[in-house]
Design a protein around this nucleic acid. Structure first.
Lengths: 176, 176
DNA sequence: TTTACCATGTAAGACGTTACATGATTAT
DNA sequence: ATAATCATGTAACGTCTTACATGGTAAA
């Protein structure tokens, strides 16, 4: 599938950046639907260079610190757009360790279950709060021509997903 | 994390079964929150035997076909219950290739986007239908003492998750 | 001066998928 | 007969995480 490849191509297409920048994008902007560690990103960047999908030029920060600023090539742009336009089958599973535990819930006692459900609720509520904070910085929906449109809709999707998870947790609590 | 280990322990704890049965459980019962291929399950079963968490006895189907029926040991039960009672931090990401594509949506045109969103909607609607069909076979919420309680709540969670995803897709369509 | 951040890489191992490989049993 | 299902394994490859490894820059 090589989704990381396309995630990187998409980020570099938005604007040229370093491996370090890409790592930050994953940890800050894309964290709610994709992520990767720098140990995965640097080798992938090398691979994309040998495949001719990106190029880089070395810049100097301060006196000696070298950084590689990557740009997408025409070939890279073409492959990225082909990927973007491809209609995928929905993924079969979204693994969720907590749901797995709940499947086995009758093997334990109500007190334990309440403790786990309350903890999950707290954590998801915190996550929802920080998502809402970011989401509320938007004043209305950006137009499709606005480059922030994508960020807006996935952020709204993340908020909705958290709200829904909390609803489910509450339902489980009500059943006990 | 070794979640597969605990998923297998939990299944075998419910009732002794073969590697083939476990594979089917993953593909049929647990598919909406966990899965694994037989090529991953058989080696894990061997590992669990050497760790003393499960044992097996060989049975014969028909004339010659051997099958290994696995049971959980006391040690296995203990480790499983410890895992089940452990309060986890929520997972940082649920990777979603389609959300990633939507993040980059402004790089393509509205027609393409509508095509992708409509396709996702169709597929998620089908998935939701089959989930509802299974869910509706329950007449009311099983009691916590009922072994089907876990299945019921995760099934309801899966239905809610699909409904929520469809709501988000509809919102995206409305924005275009 | 020291802390936070910038910047890039490799190694080892865990986890997961696809393909290879084989053969028996049951239902139509 | 023959197709679907039962039943168990290994090999190769791809993906992902944790740890190892190094050093520069900027702000307090």
């Amino acid at each position: 599938m090589r989704t990381l490849k396309y995630a990187i191509l998409g980020l570099i297409k938005q604007s040229p950046m370093t491996g370090y920048d890409i790592t930050n994008e994953f940890n800050k902007e894309l964290i709610h639907f994709w992520n990767a560690k720098h140990s995965q990103i640097y080798p992938e960047l090398k691979k994309l260079v040998t495949e001719g999908l990106i190029t880089y030029k070395t810049e100097i920060s301060g006196e000696v610190l070298e950084k590689k600023v990557y740009s997408i090539t025409e070939k890279g742009t073409k492959e990225f757009q082909e990927w973007l336009m491809t209609d995928d089958k929905i993924e079969p599973t979204a693994k969720d360790r907590f749901r797995l535990k709940m499947y086995f819930s009758t093997i334990t006692d109500k007190e334990t279950l309440l403790r786990l459900l309350n903890s999950q609720t707290r954590q998801h509520f915190e996550k929802l709060s920080s998502l809402r904070e970011r989401f509320n910085q938007y004043e209305g929906v950006p137009d499709f021509s606005d480059s922030r449109f994508g960020d807006y809709i996935v952020l709204e999707g993340a908020v909705m997903r958290e709200e829904n998870y909390l609803e489910w947790l509450q339902k489980c609590l009500d059943y006990l």
